[in-house]
């Protein structure tokens, strides 16, 4: 059977092939139940088709459109009133001009590479900071553990924008950090409007995304496994590397994916904490769209970003049982 592995197979709710055999008593009943569930799916299905699938088709279409016309609707338009000739005309009208333009402009390439670089570096730092945090929390007494988890979740619920804004006051040239450094006689540092500032902002904003999946895996881990490893002669340190770390691999994968993917397309952090020369794709899309009004270019950048993220997105989709605790 190929049904979704995350959905427990419950006898009686499965639409079994046998049910398709015609003319048997009672299969009407099963049909009814399926009918009702289909009714339940209809509303969210239509909603997502309209507000999620269709918009993406439009982004794809626009990315293949001429950029010459600055005002929507961009050519070509899909006109199905003429039947298949309309579709053929439409397809003939699509071209790769926008993509060619992107490829020839070094700025886009740099933005692409630096997005991956920022996200990659920040993910590595997150793992180094997040793993010990998650492990530390997982080892606390249950009541304290819950309070600490809440403390990690709470910032995630607090406005992203406000949290980044809070850093600006800290990092400003005459800000609180430099005041403090000055007080203890250290030279001041410049972090705001630099690439280092972007990494700091990304690490700060996505820390909960790394800690929570790691915690979920580590907390479930059976303590007796470590004891068994030590009983068999491993030092606590080696038991950690040989037992705890390999067993937490799903959590590591989850934390890495859940922070890396959105960071690649991040807009707020590079915009507010990066300098004017900080290049990231999320910001590029925003600028193309709002400042340059080059919608086909914005769409094409979005398509490239999406294509880059397809593999990690599929990984998330496949393993979301482990990813979303």
């Amino acid at each position: 059977m190929t049904h979704d592995p995350l959905i427990p197979a419950k006898a009686g709710t499965q639409a079994e092939p046998a049910a398709k055999r015609k003319g048997r008593l009672g299969s009407r009943l099963r049909g009814n139940e399926r009918g009702k569930n289909n009714l339940a799916v209809l509303a969210p299905y239509l909603w997502l088709a309209l507000f999620f699938a269709l918009p993406f088709a439009l982004v794809a279409k626009l990315s293949f459109s001429h950029s010459a016309l600055a005002i929507p609707p961009y050519a070509p338009r899909l006109d199905l009133s003429h039947g298949l000739t309309g579709l053929a005309d439409f397809l003939r009208g699509l071209d790769l001009a926008t993509y060619r333009r992107l490829a020839s402009d070094r700025l886009y390439l740099l933005a692409y590479l630096s997005s991956l670089g920022f996200a990659g570096l920040s993910t590595a730092i997150l793992l180094v900071i997040g793993y010990p945090m998650a492990y530390g929390i997982a080892r606390c007494r249950p009541r304290l553990r819950q309070a600490l988890v809440l403390a990690v979740i709470l910032p995630f619920w607090t406005s992203f924008l406000i949290r980044i804004y809070a850093w600006i006051a800290v990092l400003k040239p005459a800000g609180l950090l430099n005041q403090a450094l000055h007080l203890i006689g250290l030279p001041s540092v410049t972090l705001l409007d630099t690439n280092a500032g972007v990494v700091l902002g990304l690490v700060y904003a996505y820390l909960p995304f790394m800690v929570l999946p790691l915690y979920a895996v580590l907390e479930r881990q059976d303590e007796s496994l470590i004891e068994a490893a030590q009983d068999l002669g491993l030092t606590p340190r080696r038991a950690f590397w040989r037992v705890t770390v390999p067993l937490s691999a799903p959590g590591v994968a989850a934390g890495v994916l859940l922070s890396f993917i959105p960071m690649v397309g991040e807009f707020v952090v590079p915009d507010l904490m990066g300098g004017s020369r900080t290049l990231m794709l999320g910001r590029t899309i925003w600028t193309e769209f709002f400042a340059d009004r080059d919608w086909p270019a914005a769409s094409a950048v979005a398509m490239v970003l999406l294509a880059t993220l397809v593999v990690p997105l599929v990984l998330v989709q496949r393993r979301r049982a482990a990813l979303l605790p």
């Binding site: 918009p55 982004v59 994916l257 859940l258 993917i261 959105p262 690649v264 397309g265 991040e266 807009f267 794709l281 999320g282 899309i285 925003w286 769209f289 914005a298 769409s299 979005a302 970003l305 999406l306 993220l309 990690p312 997105l313 998330v316």
Partner: peptide, 9 residues
Amino acid sequence: VMPEVILGL
């Protein structure tokens, strides 16, 4: 997990 910028666009 989709970047918000893409969804917004």
